[in-house]
């Protein structure tokens, strides 16, 4: 056994030295390679997961916003309908009042005109009665003078 060991140059000092060398390489690679690369991989995985999650959330939010917008539009439609209806009603009322005012005014104007016409007629009649009386008077005078 010891002959075999010496043939291959096996020496426990060298065994330990090479084992320590491997240990140093292991620690160095751990610190400079495995840990940082794993951390980078994990970090990137996290970032991608977060990105996907954010996109999903944004999509949900967008869908929600669509709903809100639709509700708001429907609300506005309803309100506009209400406003239109009240405006129409007010306009109708206004129209009716204007028409009735105009009608009463026209009636009054017509009544005034009638009254004035009647007065004119009676005045003309009074004038003509006066004329007739005077003419009769003149005629009577003339007759009396001829007879005399």
């Amino acid at each position: 056994m010891s002959q075999l060991f010496s043939a291959f140059g096996i020496d426990w000092h060298l065994l330990i030295a090479q084992a320590v060398n491997f240990g140093i390489v292991l620690i160095a690679l751990w610190y400079f390679l495995y840990k940082p690369v794993m951390a980078t991989l994990d970090k990137r995985r996290e970032m991608i997961a977060k990105g996907v999650d954010d996109a999903r959330k944004a999509g949900e939010k967008l869908a929600g916003a669509d709903g809100v917008a639709a509700a708001r539009v429907a609300d506005a439609d309803k309100k506009a309908d209400g406003i239109l209806a009240t405006a129409r009603e007010a306009a109708n009322k206004e129209k009716a009042s204007i028409v009735s005012a105009a009608e009463s005014r026209a009636a009054q104007v017509a009544a005034d005109a009638e009254a004035r016409a009647a007065e004119e007629v009676s005045r003309a009649r009074r004038e003509s009665e006066k004329d007739i009386a005077r003419l009769a008077l003149l005629a009577a005078e003339k007759v009396i003078r001829e007879k005399a």
């Binding site: 291959f8 140059g9 096996i10 020496d11 060298l14 065994l15 330990i16 030295a17 090479q18 084992a19 060398n21 491997f22």
Partner: peptide, 14 residues
Amino acid sequence: PTTDLNFTLALAII
């Protein structure tokens, strides 16, 4: 080092 049995044996023991 891989042509030295000390290294390969150390690795084998680890």
